[in-house]
Design a protein around this nucleic acid. Structure first.
Lengths: 341, 341
DNA sequence: CTGAAAGCGCTTACAG
DNA sequence: CTGAAAGCGCTTACAG
């Protein structure tokens, strides 16, 4: 490969017979340059393959036009690739470049955020990862706004946007009750995530209000653990007749466990409801009743919040909960079936 | 949010009673600094929340320690989130930050690569996207190495690493033949992708060698199109008895179409084989026979190639094809069944 | 509208 | 081992 020869604005200036400042202005839309001068500069630049160096520009303007996205579970839950796709598209539309970090179980945000700050990102969007309040403080000290997607940190001044997980859990509980299901269970995601905790909270509230006892297993937001958990719930003296899984992937595991593992029928023997409404939920193999997360609105809200706080740093953070929607498909008994029988 | 007050190395220098150069050296492992001096500087830096500005550093060192990843299909094929996850992890382990671009159908690489170059990325990794030779030239002119993952550009000096798609297609064809299937079909991915073209090529070679006529539909690498395509192939006078789908997601569509749509049996009526071996392929709902792409080896090879060409720009590009592995599950008839019958 | 000059925050020869 | 100084490639007052 050819030796890297950097072309700078000075060379363009020489070729165009103008000063370096003028070349710089030609590349900034708002700067005052004679139309003819700009055209000449641009055409020479194109010819010799010149483009302004974004590092140098960021250094002097003190904005990088980069945001950091921190995400996890890209591989274990198809919901997050979609979130990432929408987020990155929306940032691109707003002229922000994306510096990406995919977090793994063994990694801590404490190692990642400093790298983002070092690169002077204008803002940070965190999804599917919990932010410690120490790190929240660190970002605040740097003056870098942080927005959380589907997580929250009480008492920090990060913005956050969540699906209304408690309300979602309640809706599922109510549907079970309306369908006259008597032995419900909850399969939790990862124990320490607010999403799983809040969905469980809403679900249990309804069950308690109706005096219904509920079983509980942990599925860690993955297919295999949920598969095993579902077997536990059904392969017992007094088996469960309905399972609420904290996400769709686990619901698929439960579904497969009930049908292939236990040779029972869904929804006749067991009703199953998930959470997310990923595209696969509507496939005939699953046909899953689930709570649809309003991804698009959550993404729009998060990105707009972050961008507006980048523009106006004194803006206070936003914290909003957005309603999901129950999507009834074939994996759960429905109230009308009950009344018809 | 508090006003952004930037802390620079000068302030650390003043507090520590050393020069700014010494502060800089304290943050560079190889630089000569007295151990005590370094410790003092680092501790003061930590206290006041100082970290070197990566932009300024990149400007002078002429390396950004950033690579660009360009990807698409993150949402439509679970194979790519996994690729992205592994790629970004591997780059992180090598101290490279990742600037991410998710490409959509309406977008062209021609708009994206200049942004990457503007930000002075040290190298570019492109996956699931085709690189025009004009753009390949543009990167070469900038001296930025490019590595392709599962794509290739003939005649450019980009590196590339592909699964052996032709061999994979041949293996599938051979399995059909060994299983005495007589009416095979191919469901193509997106028409202009080398992956789909090469898998088809290998498959058709075997069929031609054995004088077997083959049907063909297009599934555009997505579930719904493949579902429709499978119906076409089966709901006809002389229906197909085996379908090779160019990826797993399409195989799921075909599977659901055959079972739920047409009420036929897999593999008794129709054998179905996919390509990728995404995690879902082993779920009981699908239990899919498929060709496993050696993702890990492909990722390792790509990242190592790119990093070594960043370090040593005069290195010639590598272009390698890596063997996949046939994973036989329940969605296809197998030769032994035939011989037993 | 345009140019000369200062400065963004670093790294790194050069000299001591 | 340490400091003073040049310079990375830009943007942007300032003056004309």
């Amino acid at each position: 490969m050819k030796k890297k020869v950097k072309i700078t604005s000075i060379e363009v200036a020489n070729l165009a017979g103008v000063s370096q400042s003028t070349v710089s202005r030609a590349f900034t839309t708002e700067s005052p340059v004679a139309k003819k001068t700009r055209e000449k500069v641009i055409s020479i630049a194109k010819r010799i393959g010149y483009q302004p160096n974004a590092m140098a520009r960021s250094l002097i303007t003190r904005k990088s036009n980069m945001v950091g996205i921190v995400i996890s579970n890209v591989t274990s839950n198809p919901f997050y690739p979609e979130v990432l796709d929408l987020l990155s598209r929306k940032f691109q539309e707003n002229g922000q470049k994306v510096m990406l970090f995919v977090v793994h179980r063994d990694q801590s945000l404490d190692d990642i955020l400093p790298q983002l700050l070092e690169y002077q990102v204008d803002g940070i969007l965190i999804t599917a990862v919990t932010l410690s309040s120490a790190m929240a403080f660190e970002c605040e000290r740097w003056g870098t706004p942080v927005t959380l997607f589907n997580r929250y940190v009480p008492g920090s001044n990060a913005s956050w946007f969540c699906c209304d997980n408690i309300a979602g859990g309640r809706t599922v509980g109510q549907l079970f009750i309306d369908s006259e299901l008597k032995r419900p269970a909850y399969i939790a995601g990862s124990e320490n995530t607010s999403t799983s905790i809040d969905r469980e909270k809403g679900f249990m509230e309804i069950m308690n209000e109706n005096g219904i006892k509920t079983l509980r297993e942990v599925g860690n937001y993955n297919y295999n653990d949920a598969y095993a958990a579902a077997i536990q719930l059904v392969d017992r003296p007094n088996p469960v007749d309905s399972i609420f899984c904290s996400n769709d992937i686990m619901a698929f595991g439960a579904l497969d466990a009930i049908r292939s593992g236990m040779d029972l029928k869904v929804p006749e023997d067991v009703s199953i409801i998930g959470f997310d409404d990923i595209p696969m939920a509507s496939w005939p193999s699953f046909n899953l009743t689930t709570v649809r997360q309003p991804v698009r609105r959550m993404v729009d809200a998060s990105v707009e919040d972050l961008i507006s706080r980048i523009k106006t740093p004194e803006k206070p953070p936003n914290q909003k909960v957005i309603m999901g929607e129950m999507i009834v498909r074939g994996s759960s008994r429905i109230p009308s079936e009950v009344s018809m029988s």
